[in-house]
Design a protein around this nucleic acid. Structure first.
Length: 639
RNA sequence: GGGCUCGUGGUGUAGCGGCCUAACAUGCCAGCCUGUCACGCUGGAGACCGCCGGUUCGAAUCCGGUCGAGCCCGCCA
């Protein structure tokens, strides 16, 4: 190789696939290229050896091209090809030729041609891979896939998902730039705040004894950018939360974070909705959007009708209240005859139901399984009524309720013959909604009620401002401590006692609604945001309700509070989970499947072996020493 | 912190108290084969059943513990 010289090619050539190793990728040669002399490079996908004739399918991320090595025409190439094995990296020189009539392969984009090799060079050898790379559907233990992630990415399914994710991020960027947003990076080394999830901590060497925290989201920074006059900001931001993992949760994940100035809830939702539609159409054009504009559902309606603040609108099966149906007939209007229901009514609880289509013939064990499902989420039981072919109902609790009430339940639930009405009763209305909401979601999918191709986006708005934290005796922000209050509820941001620093459960603040909106997609929470409080006085009132003294406010949020003294515009925004979005776009239920290098459920990286013990010098430079953990306070234990 | 599931040649599975000195498919190795594309045919190597301990005359198979992976509750938006 000679010394690199100044640029000798055009940008087009520099951007193209041609390199000193290849003239074309493995996915682009067509019949029209017949006769071309080409160099082509890639991995050996498969090898078919006929003795004097060897076929090699050469693969790169663009596709597959068949190479033919004919011993009688290229004896040297044939000798090399004899030693070639799967996943070797080759550079092949030869001639593009139309395949013999009748031997074309319609399954390949390049199936009309083959490259007749003149020479074959092995650029790199490979061990036998630990799992099949050339059979994309072959199941593989996930820990193996994680340990050899670079091999898993060679396989089509994961490759395709990462390409789709790349398109998603590209579409997001293009749309935001077109809408005049400025993309700004914010720091990863930040200050710890007590809100929300547990922080990841990074000890400071220059400030011994102090720590940085990794951002759970760039929340405060984007608000400061609004104070800075940036007007429209967005970022594809990495976020970190030190909590236990789930299929839809990794310790580090990616958010689309955006904020706009001089906006209302309506205005932010309008932009985000238009952006989502544009991105969806660009990335998954063949997937219909269920409803345009997106349904906008008040939080309380969402809980009432779907038992969820992220309802899956691909199917109905809404929750219905049975109070009226149960009150109806009978000698004693205060008694339904069924003790569980009577106690619930006496406790001013809720009795609600869903009708599961076609499940009327569910077996005893199927019912038991549903009862166990309901119990897992805190229900004390799960009553059921099966609807007979003639439209009447039968149920184990019919002997308590009587036929008239059973009929009223069937009617209230709008259950048809063959359906199964599932009933949850509890003194806690939230629990009833949660359990039925989870049953609804589970059964909707199990019964195939959801069109899997549809994208059912919806907004849920006006979340409660706070929820009472009985352990700590204060109001917790439902979402974000900076969320603004709906203007007509501003007067509710007070305590019953009048002292803003003594919150109690009876405070009017418990009824205040936030200018908070979530976007849900097919039953997943895709994102959430709010119009923020931009007046310092109101922010202090809100923080007081959340249990912060003036000193604590300054300690924890001093920077942003001070900023709000220098002219903060009204502003609002949203954060959306890119990983979840990509997973939903590619029909995955686990975000690991759309991440290049995810971690296991116990937070480890099986490929790199992270986390690992630090070197002693790293400890001493930071003034740290590992003293072990209290028994039971963590899994690391003492060594 | 807790519950559940899984862990057998390289990979995916079967075997679930003695018939297992572990079976099948695929992969791997060798040989033959000039038109295949999940090529074919013949032959061969390869696991002591995650690890430790226990029960038993006898364990891959039962029990306990432990490690790893997954799902879930708590946690988390």
């Amino acid at each position: 190789m000679s010394e690199p010289s100044p640029a000798s090619t055009s940008p087009e050539a520099a951007f193209g696939p041609v390199t000193p190793y290849r003239d074309a990728t493995c996915g682009e040669l067509r019949a029209a290229d017949a006769g071309r002399e080409v160099r082509i490079a890639g991995w050996v996908h498969r090898r078919r050896d006929y003795g004097g004739l060897i076929f090699i399918d050469l693969r790169d991320r663009y596709g597959l091209t068949q190479i033919v090595i004919n011993e009688s025409e290229a004896p040297e190439a044939s000798e090399v090809a004899n030693g070639v094995r799967i996943e070797f990296v080759l550079e092949v020189r030869g001639t593009v030729a139309r395949r013999l009539a009748g031997t074309e392969n319609s399954k390949l984009a390049t199936g009309d041609i083959e490259v007749q090799a003149r020479s074959v060079e092995i650029l790199s050898e490979s061990q036998t891979p630990p799992f099949y790379i050339n059979e994309p559907d072959a199941p593989v233990d996930e820990s193996l896939r994680l340990r050899y992630r670079y091999l898993d990415i060679r396989r089509k399914p994961l490759l395709d998902r990462l390409l789709l994710r790349s398109e998603l991020v590209r579409a997001i960027r293009e749309t935001h730039h077109r809408a005049g947003f400025v993309e700004i990076e914010t720091p990863i080394l930040l200050k710890s705040t007590p809100e929300g999830a547990r922080d990841f901590i990074v000890p400071s060497r220059l400030q011994p004894g102090s720590v940085y925290a990794l951002p759970q989201s760039p929340q405060q920074l984007k608000q400061l950018l609004m104070v800075a006059g940036m007007d429209r900001y967005f970022q594809i931001a990495r976020c970190f939360r030190d909590e236990d993992l789930r299929g839809d949760r990794q310790p580090e994940f990616t958010q689309l974070d955006l904020e706009m100035s001089f906006v209302t809830e309506q205005r932010v939702m309008d932009f985000v909705e238009a952006m989502i539609v544009e991105v969806s159409r660009a990335v998954v054009p063949d997937r219909p959007i269920a409803q345009l504009p997106f349904p906008r559902i008040d939080y309380h309606d969402a809980i009432e009708r779907y038992g969820s603040d992220k309802p899956d609108l691909r199917f109905g099966m809404e929750l219905v209240d049975l109070a009226a149906a149960l009150a109806g007939p009978g000698a004693d209007p205060d008694s339904t005859g069924f003790r569980v229901f009577d106690e619930t009514i006496a406790a001013r609880g809720r009795i609600k139901a869903i009708a599961a289509p076609g499940m009327g013939d569910a077996s005893r064990s199927q019912i038991d399984e549903l009862v166990a499902f309901a119990r897992r989420y805190g229900a004390k039981g799960l009553a059921h009524v099966s609807v007979n072919p003639d439209g009447t109902g039968h149920s184990p609790i019919a002997k308590f309720l009587g036929d008239e009430r059973i009929a009223a339940i069937v009617k209230a639930a709008a259950a048809k013959s063959g359906d199964l009405v599932l009933i949850v009763a509890d003194a806690e209305a939230d629990l009833v909604a949660d359990v039925l909401g989870r049953l609804r979601q589970e059964l909707g999918l199990r019964l195939g009620l959801a069109d899997l191709n549809v994208l059912a986006y919806c907004w849920v708005y006006h979340f409660p401002m706070y929820k009472w934290d009985s352990d700590r005796g204060r109001w917790d922000a439902t979402h974000n401590p900076f969320s603004g209050v709906v203007p007509e509820d501003e007067k509710l941001l007070v305590t019953a006692s009048g002292d803003p620093y003594r919150p109690t459960r009876q405070d009017p603040a418990g009824k205040a609604r936030a200018m908070q909106y979530d976007i849900a997609l097919n039953g997943w929470e895709l994102g959430g945001g709010s119009v923020r409080i931009h007046r310092r006085e109101l922010l202090e009132r809100s923080f007081a309700l959340q249990g912060y003294s003036l000193e604590q406010m300054h300690e924890l949020f001093g920077g942003i509070l001070e900023a709000f003294d220098f002219g903060a515009p009204p502003h609002g925004g949203i954060a959306m989970g890119i990983d979840r979005w990509a997973a939903l776009f590619s029909h995955q239920t686990n975000i690991r499947e759309v991440m290049a290098f995810p971690k296991t459920q116990s937070g480890t990286d099986l490929m790199l072996g992270a986390p690992s013990e630090p070197e002693p010098e790293q400890y001493s430079e930071l003034g740290l020493r590992f003293v072990g953990l209290e028994p039971g306070s963590g899994k690391a234990g003492q060594s």
